[in-house]
Simulated scan of single mutants.
Amino acid sequence: MHVLLVMTGGVLQLAVFVLFGWLWGGSSAAMASAARWFIPLWCLVAAANMWVGVAHAGYTARQEFPILLLNIAVPAVIAALLAWRLSHGS
């Protein structure tokens, strides 16, 4: 359940990034740029989530690593597809 919540949080954070891209840039290019900026920042957030799992929840890094990859992959793939779609027009 926690993995689903983290991935949902990532997609919501992506939506906020794209919204701010629109508000600050007013174009699809700015929204695509915001989606591209989301990816490395989301990797840091997911890594912090892994650290909490290892340091406080009692999991090993080996147990948490596949979860980290899943938590990164779903929102990052959505962001990459959205950035590609926005940068290539409709």
Rank of each mutant, 00 (worst) to 15 (best):
S90Y: 07
G26D: 07
V16H: 08
V52D: 06
G53H: 08
V52K: 02
L41T: 05
S28A: 13
P40Y: 15
A76V: 04
A79I: 12
E64M: 08
S28P: 00
V11W: 05
A34D: 11
A55W: 12
L44M: 13
A47H: 04
V77D: 00
L81P: 00
W24T: 14
L19W: 14
Q13Y: 12
N49K: 03
I39K: 04
L19D: 04
I39H: 06
P75Y: 04
V16Q: 12
G53F: 10
A29Q: 11
A57V: 12
W24F: 15
V74Q: 01
M50K: 02
L4F: 09
W37H: 08
F17W: 15
V6R: 12
T60D: 09
A83V: 09
N49E: 10
A83I: 09
I39E: 03
V52G: 02
P75C: 07
A32V: 01
G25H: 03
G9V: 08
V11G: 03
N71Y: 00
M31Y: 06
G53C: 11
G9K: 12
A32C: 03
P66H: 08
V3W: 06
P40E: 13
V45M: 05
M1D: 10
L23M: 14
A80D: 07
H2W: 08
M1I: 11
M1P: 04
G58E: 08
A73T: 13
F17M: 08
A35V: 03
W24A: 15
R85I: 04
F38M: 01
M31E: 11
Q13R: 10
F20E: 10
Y59S: 11
V45D: 00
A32P: 00
V3A: 14
A35Y: 13
L5C: 05
M50W: 11
W24I: 13
A83H: 07
A55R: 02
A34M: 13
V52L: 13
R62S: 12
A46H: 06
V54R: 01
G26W: 06
G58S: 10
V77F: 15
L69Q: 09
A15F: 08
A46V: 09
P75Q: 07
E64S: 05
V45C: 01
V18L: 06
V11Q: 05
S28D: 12
H88E: 15
W37D: 04
Q13P: 00
A34Q: 09
L69Y: 05
H56Q: 09
P40D: 13
A29W: 11
F38R: 01
L86Y: 03
R36P: 00
L69S: 03
G21S: 10
V74L: 14
A76C: 15
F17V: 02
L14T: 06
L12H: 01
A46R: 03
L82K: 08
G53S: 12
A30W: 15
R36L: 15
L5D: 06
L19M: 14
M1R: 12
L82C: 08
V3Q: 12
V18N: 05
A61H: 02
G25D: 05
H2V: 13
V45Y: 12
L19V: 11
V77S: 09
V6D: 04
L12N: 01
T8I: 10
A29K: 05
P75G: 07
N71P: 00
F38T: 02
S27I: 00
F38K: 02
G58M: 07
V18C: 07
H56V: 08
L81N: 09
L68H: 02
V6P: 00
A15R: 10
G53N: 14
M31W: 11
I67W: 09
M50I: 06
A79C: 11
M1F: 12
